[in-house]
């Protein structure tokens, strides 16, 4: 996962920003408690949003917890809920399979760090697998499809984004209520599509240099290492289309006290983040980077 999504903090008051943070911290604590220290380093914003959407209607009780980062004053974290558990299990499984991918893609020496990271994560993964077996199978299936699309140099943005989008949509299957499941499936699908395409735009220059597959290159036939203006415009339109699908699905949910926070994401910040990525001015925060390099860094740090 990549960690692009965040609320438009400038639109929100202290309370709403704290609320977002409490889920982020809550998720971190759940990861730690269930899967140990190494798993905490897998945390990112995208899953924070997923956890919020899954927890709508659940309790929002908070408590103060201390951690290595906030040893003295601690911070208010969301008490463990079923949604946080669900998100934590899925973070671990997804990270595990992404690691396996990297190991397969690299030789013995360059893949050593991934092997090491996988070793650290093995126990956590085994536990997560027993808790979310169907998601585990789905991730394998979708990541295989993704690799296939990469190999065949897929020129359709939608076909290239489908496996990752479907993978996120799969998370909605934990919902027991039929209507909510339909809504969240649609929302997560387009969140996945948006993340995948934003990430492709973000990595465009890097991929042009390294020769890695990037769907935008094949879709727009762009040879240079920057996207031409008309390609950018077309990509922006399709990113908008996904944001509007997300907003349409979100409008059908009862967001309750999360409404200001989620409004700021679906009606504002996603557009801004997309624009920043397209203009090449989006700087990912230190710990949360996308793609392969990011995983490396994250694991290196966790070691």
């Amino acid at each position: 996962m990549f960690g692009y999504v965040r609320p438009a903090a400038h639109r929100l008051g202290e309370a709403d920003n704290e609320r977002f943070r409490s889920v982020y911290c809550g998720l971190c604590h759940v990861l730690g408690r269930r899967y140990g220290l190494a798993a905490r380093f897998l945390l990112n914003f995208d899953f924070t949003l997923l956890a919020i959407l899954l927890s709508l209607g659940e309790g929002t009780e908070r408590c103060v917890r201390r951690c290595a980062v906030h040893p003295c004053r601690g911070c208010a974290v969301l008490r463990e809920t079923a949604a946080l558990d669900v998100a934590a299990d899925r973070i671990v499984i997804l990270a595990w399979w992404q690691l396996r991918d990297h190991i397969a893609d690299h030789g013995f020496w360059s893949g050593l760090k991934y092997r090491l990271a996988a070793l650290l994560l093995r126990r956590a993964y085994r536990k997560a697998k027993t808790l979310a077996a169907s998601f585990d199978t789905a991730v394998q299936k979708h990541l295989d499809e993704l690799a296939l699309r990469e190999r065949e140099h897929c020129a359709s943005l939608d076909a290239a984004a489908e496996p990752f989008a479907a993978l996120l949509a799969e998370i909605a299957s934990v919902e027991t209520d039929e209507t909510r499941r339909r809504i969240l499936t649609q929302l997560f699908y387009h969140l996945g599509r948006w993340i995948y395409l934003a990430d492709a735009a973000d990595d465009f220059r890097e991929d042009a240099k390294s020769g890695n597959y990037n769907p935008l290159r094949y879709r727009y036939g762009a040879e240079a290492d920057v996207l031409p203006e008309d390609a950018k415009r077309s990509l922006a339109e399709t990113l908008d289309a996904s944001i509007r699908r997300m907003a349409g699905a979100y409008a059908l949910l009862d967001a309750g006290e999360w409404a200001p926070l989620l409004d700021s994401i679906f009606y504002d910040s996603l557009f801004g983040i997309g624009r920043a990525v397209l203009d090449g001015v989006y700087h990912r925060p230190p710990r949360i980077r996308s793609g392969r390099g990011a995983e490396e860094e994250r694991y290196e740090r966790s070691l």
């Binding site: 359709s156 943005l157 939608d158 076909a159 489908e162 989008a165 649609q186 699908y189 387009h190 599509r193 879709r219 077309s234 339109e237 399709t238 289309a241 996904s242 699908r245």
Partner: peptide
């Protein structure tokens, strides 16, 4: 309907 918005366009 499938969410393939770029192809749709």
């Amino acid at each position: 309907r499938r969410g393939w918005m770029d192809d749709a366009k």
